[in-house]
Design a protein around this nucleic acid. Structure first.
Lengths: 335, 335
DNA sequence: GGAGCGCATGTTACCGCTAACAAACGAGGC
DNA sequence: GCCTCGTTTGTTAGCGGTAACATGCGCTCC
């Protein structure tokens, strides 16, 4: 920067100003600095800038996994919103564990991010302590804080009601006249559990809940797992006439297995998935599922964060916001 | 750090040493510093550390897209290898464009990463200039530099031969006795083109190439696109008896569409995909495809990079390395 | 015609840590 | 008993920018 300053015949401070806020220097100086800067191939060091200005222009983004398309879409939304504003996402993978999350968060915080985006609300007490102590904005995604909850520590959430979405599926299957409605779930994170809770309540409200038809396993969801669990369900409860699979990859696996076993869908078995992942509209038959606004959640979380990072007065942290982006039941042909 | 130093009764420098290289201080001092550090909740600022030591402990990772599972797997491999070593990946999305790549690389370089991982070898002259000027290690992935190529600028590549993989599929379809073998490709990046080139050569070697059976479109691949392009192919060339789809999502879409149209696979039409994405083994019938070592490429690239970053003498950049991790033709039932 | 003001630029003092060198100290060798 | 050497700790001087304040200058205004 000193070299550029010398070449342009100004002070280093003026170079810094000319490049960051061109409107604060005279047109003539701006041009000279830009020319010198380009000619010398000057790239300002963000590290030094960060140290001097106490802004790193980075945002910590913690997601459970890279292999689940849901969080990739979330990340894509965050990334495409932050990037144009000059923010660099620092991706951290928590592996669905609150303890790992705390560990990852600690290492991310050492990088002094200007904001934090977390997945879910299921954090360790240590994580909550950390968050309480932060002076940077924090957004929780994919879930909504219950009204009044976390009153000791105002939180900003962007997501949708997993419970309501699960309820909607249960109610839909019941409304289709199904009597023996089963559940298949993997990857039992808090959000999956809430979906299951909603589904269960819907069936209870319809008077058709049978706990024996619930099959919940901790394994990561996959097409293979869906196929396997479908077989297991039909082996133990051959009279099952409808199934809610808590993620579309499970549902796709189940559909494949039905095709293989010659089970007509939806005539003999109705199938509903969750998330409306890529391809769900193209399965045979097209899959009924719940479209979730994952990318939009990422975009909105990033927007809120940018707003919070812009005004450095932490007043915005006072008013907890709760952005409900909803969900849509996509009724297709498997039900 | 000054506070910790005071609390432990030592100098700041000793605190720094005690925390970074515990073996260089006495046992007693180490314990006192650790205790004080913990008690005060001290978290060293990586920004300041980076500025003083000229190591940011970050690695720029540029991939074309977040919505293509291939690059997510690559990223996952990189991430899981870098993280335990204390490196933080900085993810940049290039959108498959060399110009965008150059732009993203420039902004990433402002963060002073200690290493760079790129996708492919298709860079702008400006990018090559940038890379030549760097004193940090750079790895190119998903492709292999031809022997002797880029002799002006030694490159390290980790990948497999896209050409050979395409050739293997073409040869396989020909060996199955198919006569009218078509091609469907989307997302025409250089790697896709190489696969197509290999496939084409295989068919020529078998005396069965017909350019009219090639359908190449620039759109991003998807299940929907596969279904659509299958129909288009059959409409114009109903005698097609085998198809290579350059990515598994296309192939899955084609399989779905075949099921819908009542076209028996593989009896009337053989189908081969590429990448062995999740679920390929579970389609109906299970999909013949090429398993590509995406995660392994990420792991190996990160390993090489770590080695290069460890010895700060840039001698390792002199010897271009070329790590071929191969591919596997997964013959299943669609062929 | 001089006070007062606004704008453009310069000066100073850090941001929080670490490389490099200096100093202090005890142990071993002759 | 003195010198050399290795080990541990301290001192100094930045790393490359930017916040905050200071300065200089041309104008307007009464």
């Amino acid at each position: 920067m000193a070299d550029v300053a010398a070449a342009a015949g100004v002070s280093a401070m003026t170079v810094s100003r000319a490049l960051r806020r061109p409107d604060t220097v005279s047109e003539e100086v701006r041009a000279r600095v830009e020319e010198a800067s380009r000619r010398l191939g000057f790239v300002p060091s963000r590290v030094a800038s960060a140290l001097a200005s106490a802004r790193t222009m980075t945002v910590a983004v913690l997601i459970p996994s890279l292999t689940n398309a849901v969080f990739i879409d979330l990340l894509a939304g965050v990334q495409e919103t932050l990037s144009p504003q000059g923010y660099q996402p620092l991706v951290g993978i928590t592996g669905y564990g609150p303890e790992a999350e705390e560990r990852v968060l600690r290492t991310q915080l050492a990088h002094d991010p200007d904001g934090v985006i977390l997945t879910g609300l299921d954090h360790t007490p240590g994580t909550w302590d950390l968050l309480r102590g932060l002076t940077i904005p924090v957004i929780h995604t994919m879930d909504l804080a219950a009204e009044g909850e976390h009153s000791d520590c105002p939180v900003q959430t962007v997501g949708f009601s997993q419970y309501d979405a699960g309820y909607a599926v249960g109610a839909h299957l019941a409304a289709r006249g199904r009597r023996r409605i089963g559940l298949i779930a993997g990857q039992l994170d808090p959000r999956t559990r809430q979906r299951c809770d909603g589904w269960r309540q819907a069936l209870r409200d319809a008077g058709r809940h049978d706990a024996a038809l619930e099959l919940m396993v901790p394994d990561a969801t996959s097409v293979a797992l869906g196929a396997e669990l479908l077989e297991r369900t039909l082996a133990t409860h051959p009279d099952t006439d409808a199934l809610f699979l808590c993620n579309d990859d499970l549902a796709q696996g189940a559909l494949f297995q039905c095709a293989r076993l010659g089970i007509p869908v939806p005539e003999r078995l109705a199938v509903a998935g969750f998330n409306d992942l890529a391809g769900a509209a193209w399965t045979v038959p097209p899959l009924t599922t719940v479209a979730t606004p994952r990318r939009a959640i990422g975009v909105e979380a990033a927007r809120l964060l940018i707003a919070g990072m812009a005004d450095r007065t932490p007043k915005s942290r006072e008013n907890p916001r709760r952005v409900d982006l909803g969900f849509r039941l996509m009724v297709r042909e498997t039900t």
